[in-house]
Amino acid sequence: MSKTLLPFKSEQELIQACQKQDRRAQQIVYQVNAGKMMAVCKRYLGVGPDAEDALMEGFMKVFSKIDNFQGQGSFEGWIRKIMVNESLMKIRKTANRYDQDINETYDIAHPEDAIMHLGVEEIQNLILELPPGYRTIFNLYAIEGYSHIEIGDMLQISEGTSKSQLSRARQLLQSKLKELQA
């Protein structure tokens, strides 16, 4: 990590330089985080120009709002949050996919042990095959770790809708995993 931050001695120093709009510091922040953040954007938006746009606009926001970073939590976590929000905004622009308020939950069969040994690429592909609405909620709940209440606030939907959409997402993943095993 210290090699990548050169010529800055610490992350704190790097952030302070970014706050002064130091171009070198901004480039280092981008180089360190771009790969991970691209993966985040792709997980929500799929492969294509939307993910790249979200990444670019997300980093523009990072550099313009860096004064707001108070040092509470990790810097990477703060950038990730911005990227997730940017991806959600992109999804929201295309269509409203959260209009179903289904309180019915689905009984989920137990995932097989083999599923636990899936590679990253396979997991990524499985998630990307989900419809955008289910995918968003599965990503927010299962991967980012947000609660249903938080998801409801972020997407302007009810907690029940979030829960039911997660159940549907899990059900779809279950059937896809069965196909993979077969």
């Binding site: 771009a34 790969g35 691209m38 993966a39 990444l55 523009m60 636990m116 899936l118 770790g145």
Partner: peptide, 28 residues
């Protein structure tokens, strides 16, 4: 299962086109 996936995806990196930094720099 989701915990397992989260750990795997957390450190996952994707390739980023070089043009994106140029566009960011231009906008800055």
């Amino acid at each position: 299962l989701e915990k397992n996936w989260r750990e795997k995806l957390d450190s996952h990196k994707e390739e980023v086109p070089a043009a994106i930094w140029n566009q960011i720099e231009k906008k800055l």
